[in-house]
């Protein structure tokens, strides 16, 4: 089953055309990595997919439900507020800079949205949160505040916070870019475990080795378009000079 389908996504900021025409889809349990040079529009794709930005053109479909349809001119027409609210529950997003709520403890960061958005009971929310914390190796941090945690721990908490809402698909925007090199491992490990649990994920990353090991498919983006797409094997053995160049830089 297709969890996400994006067709002909277009997005400009004023006169700057950032996303020119992007189509992609992700099946249940699939891990898709997006790589590409800085400024190529990777974050913008995720921000449009998670509705932090409105796309100008194209369709956005979660589990067969249209968040945005295309009209005759190809421009995006968004669904009603009520429908969007429901569709919103299908996805979660992990930010490069964590964006934890600093005034909430680790536990509260994780249980608050399920309680105040999904209206589940505190008991159930706490059970869910504790199971997640245990899985991510953070049980003993439940009463800590974000400022007391390392970057790697903060990012793991933000992953737990997203998972607590039980999304069907999780987006990661360079989840380890803000971390010291010695802390990236613990976050990548957690994402790998999620992949083993068949979590559907789209990951924007500069960690080439990680993308290669983990992904079912990799997309190479440049200048707002998809320059290449395929299995890790395809991408890492491509004849496409741009992709070769790019991978070379990061592998080197």
């Amino acid at each position: 089953m297709k969890i996400l389908e994006i067709n002909h996504m277009k997005k400009s900021f004023d006169d700057l055309e950032v996303i020119k025409d992007i189509s992609l889809s992700v099946n249940e349990g699939e891990v898709l990595s997006i790589i590409g040079p800085s400024g190529s529009g990777k974050s913008t794709v995720l921000r449009c997919a998670t509705m932090l930005e409105k796309m100008d053109g194209g369709e956005l479909i979660y589990l067969g439900e249209h968040a945005a349809e295309m009209n005759n001119e190809g421009r995006s027409v968004y669904a009603s507020k009520k429908d969007l609210k429901r569709i919103h529950k299908h996805f979660g997003l992990v930010f490069q800079s964590f964006n934890l709520f600093p005034h909430y403890s680790v536990l509260k960061n994780i249980i608050d949205a399920p309680m105040s958005v999904d209206k589940i009971s505190r008991k159930e929310a706490e059970e869910r949160a504790m199971a997640l914390l245990k899985k991510l190796g953070l049980e003993d941090k439940k009463d800590a505040y974000p400022f007391q945690l390392s970057g790697g721990q903060q990012q793991r908490v933000s992953i737990a916070r997203a998972l607590a809402l039980q999304p069907k698909i999780l987006f990661f925007d360079e989840p380890t870019s803000a971390l010291d090199p010695e802390l990236t491992g613990e976050v990548l490990k957690v994402i790998k475990e999620l992949a083993q649990d068949n979590m559907t994920m789209i990951i924007v990353t500069h960690e080439m080795q990680f993308a290669k090991e983990l992904s079912d498919r990799i997309i190479f983006m440049e200048d707002g378009v998809i320059q290449g797409e395929g299995t890790p094997e395809d991408i890492f053995n491509t004849e496409n000079e741009r992709i070769k160049d790019f991978i070379g830089k990061f592998a080197g």
């Binding site: 609210k85 996805f91 930010f95 800079s97 964006n99 709520f101 105040s116 958005v117 999904d118 809402l165």
Partner: peptide, 24 residues
């Protein structure tokens, strides 16, 4: 980022302001 995190988690505008923004 605080607004964006709240939005992606599904908080509505009132919840975002009174639970996340105002206390800070």
């Amino acid at each position: 980022g605080q607004y964006e995190a709240a939005k992606v988690l599904g908080y509505n505008k009132g919840q975002t302001f009174f639970k996340i923004i105002l206390p800070q």
